[in-house]
Design a binder for these strands. Structure first.
Lengths: 282, 282
DNA sequence: GACAAGTGTTACGATATTTGAAACAACAAG
DNA sequence: CTTGTTGTTTCAAATATCGTAACACTTGTC
C-alpha cells in the first residue's frame, strides 16, 4: 500500500519533464534512416502488405520518396514485392533478430517450467523482456489455435498497460523507474494518465505478492498474469507471464490460485541463478 | 544427368550479366538508410556488441557519422548500450520479424512431421524459405545442446553453398532460375565458380530423387539433407532440411536411407495442400 | 473502345540534410 | 603527467535528398 503511494508520488513529480527541444526536429537524428525504419515498422500481423501510396499516406511522405526508400529496402533484402505489386516484409528480416535470440540462451532452460505453467493454467505462457518503452516476447508456449493472435517471439506491447509490462516496471527502482515513467508519460500522455493507478497498484502487487494481473488492459479479451523474474547479466529485464481467454478466467481463481502458483514458479526459476533477483527480494 | 548439363549451360550463359551501372553509386538508392541497416546487419551470433569506432572501421564510415546513425537507431529502439558503453541490438528488433512469423501460419502444421524426422534422423530439422540471395530458417526442431550453433528462426545461409539453398534453387525454373544464378554469380564471383558443379548436381538431384545432400559445404562439420517442398500462395519458396554432425553421418546411410525418407516425408507434406508443388512434379 | 482516375517510377533543380574536420571532454595506459 | 584512445558536438561545405512534374501503366466506368 505505502509502496503504491510512493510510486504515485514519483509519478506526480514526473509531470515536469523535458518538453523543450523534443518536439523540434532533432538535428542530431538521421531523418532518412528513421523514415526507412518507420516503413518496416508499419507492418504488423493484421496488415502484412502495403501499396506504395498507402505507405506514403500513413507516414505523410511523398510517393516519390517512398518509392526510393522502398527500393532501397528491397535492395537490402528486407522488403519484397508480391505478385500484386504490394510491398511485403521479406523473410530475411528474421536475420536481424537472430543475434538477439542467440544471445538469450537462458530461454531454453525455461521451456520446461513454462510448459508446466501452461498445463496448469491451460493458457499461453510467455517470456518478455523490456526494450525501451515496450515489452517484447522472446519465448512463448501455447496453442496457436485457441487464441486470436499467434503466440510467437517478437510480439510487443505497452509497458504501462499490460501485466507483462507492469511486472517489468516493478524491476526498476529509484531514478531508473522515475525516468522510465517520465518517458512513458511523455510518449502516451492520455493513456498514461488513464492507467496510472492500475499501473502503480500492479507494481506494488509484484513487490508484495510476487505477481500482478490485468483484466483486458491490453488485449480486451485476455486476462493476464505476470511475475518479475529479474535481470540478466547483460542487462535485460525479464518477466514471466500467462494469458487466458477472459471467459475462462474466474477472478478468484486468478488471484488466489493461479497468481500465487505463478509467483511460486518464478521463485524456483530464480533459484537457477540465471537472473539477478529483483531488488525488493533482499 | 541431362538436367544437370542443361543447368550448367544456363550457368555459363549467366556469365555476361549487367556489370554496367552496378558498381557506380546507385543514385536511386538512399545511402543513409543503407548505412543504418548495415549497422544492424553487422551483428551476428558470434559478435553481439560493437564499439562505435569498430563499426566505423568495418563500414568505412566516419566516427561522427556512426555516432549519429547509432543515436538514431537507439532512438528508434533497435539498438541499446550495454553497461560498458558498447552497442547491442535491442530486443525490440524482434518486433520487426513478428509480422513475417505471423504470416507463415503453415509452419505450425509442419511441426509434427518435423519432429518425426528429427527423431528418425537424430538431427536438427529446419524449414527454410528463399529470401533474395539467401535462405532463411523460419522453423527449427532440434537440440540446442548437441550443436555448435543454436537452431532458431532467423538463421540465414547461402543459396548456392548449402543443401537448403540448393533445394530452394531447384524450385526455380527457366528465366527465374537464370536470373537468380546471375545474381548469385554477381554477388559471390569466386565462391560461385567453386561450387557451381556441386550446386548443379544438387539441383538435378532434387528433381530426380527429391532430395540433395551437402557434406560441410556451408557449416564445415555438418552434413545436411534437404528437400524442396514447393511455393506458398503468397510466393514463398520453402524447403525442408535436416542437419547432422559429420561424425554421426555415414554417407551410405545418408544417401540410401535418410535421403529417401526425407523425400518421402516431403511427399506426404505436399499432400496437405499448403504448397504449390515443384514444377517438375507435374 | 475511349475516357477518367489512380498508381508507381524516373528526371532534375532547389534545398535541406548529411558529412567530415576539428575541437572537446572522458577515459585508460604508460 | 603525459600520450593515445574513444565518443560526442559544433559548424560550414558539399552532397544527397526532396518535391514537382511528366511519364507509362493499370483499373474501372460509361
Amino acid at each position: 500500500m505505502s509502496d503504491g503511494k510512493t510510486i504515485l508520488n514519483e509519478w506526480a513529480d514526473a509531470g515536469e519533464c523535458e518538453l523543450p527541444g523534443e518536439n523540434a526536429t532533432d538535428q542530431a537524428l538521421s531523418s532518412t534512416l528513421m523514415k526507412g525504419l518507420e516503413i518496416l515498422a508499419l507492418f504488423n500481423d493484421q496488415e502484412d502488405r502495403f501499396a506504395n501510396s498507402e505507405i506514403a499516406r500513413r507516414l505523410g511522405l511523398n510517393r516519390a520518396t517512398v518509392s526510393r526508400l522502398c527500393k532501397t529496402l528491397m535492395h537490402m533484402g528486407y522488403l519484397r514485392r508480391d505478385t500484386k505489386g504490394n510491398f511485403r516484409l521479406a523473410p530475411r528480416i528474421l536475420g536481424l533478430s537472430y543475434p538477439v535470440l542467440a544471445a538469450t540462451r537462458w530461454r531454453h532452460q525455461l521451456v520446461g517450467p513454462m510448459r508446466e505453467i501452461a498445463e496448469m493454467s491451460t493458457g499461453n505462457v510467455t517470456l518478455a523482456v523490456m526494450s525501451g518503452d515496450q515489452f517484447v516476447q522472446v519465448q512463448t508456449i501455447g496453442d496457436p489455435i485457441s487464441f486470436p493472435h499467434i503466440p510467437e517471439p517478437g510480439i510487443t506491447g505497452p509497458l504501462h498497460r499490460s501485466a507483462s509490462g507492469r511486472a517489468l516496471l516493478s524491476l526498476l527502482e529509484g531514478q531508473e523507474l522515475y525516468d522510465k515513467l517520465a518517458e512513458l508519460r511523455l510518449r502516451f500522455p492520455e493513456e498514461f494518465a488513464t492507467h496510472a493507478e492500475d499501473t502503480a497498484a500492479s507494481i506494488a502487487r509484484c513487490r508484495d505478492a510476487g505477481f500482478c494481473s490485468s483484466y483486458g488492459d491490453w488485449r480486451p479479451n485476455i486476462v493476464a498474469l505476470s511475475t518479475p523474474l529479474g535481470e540478466t547479466e547483460d542487462g535485460l529485464r525479464v518477466a514471466l507471464s500467462c494469458g487466458l481467454p477472459r471467459f475462462r478466467a474466474r477472478e478468484d481463481v486468478v488471484e488466489n490460485d493461479l497468481g500465487p502458483r505463478l509467483a511460486e514458479a518464478a521463485k524456483s526459476i530464480r533459484m537457477m541463478g540465471i537472473f539477478k533477483p529483483p531488488y525488493f527480494l533482499n
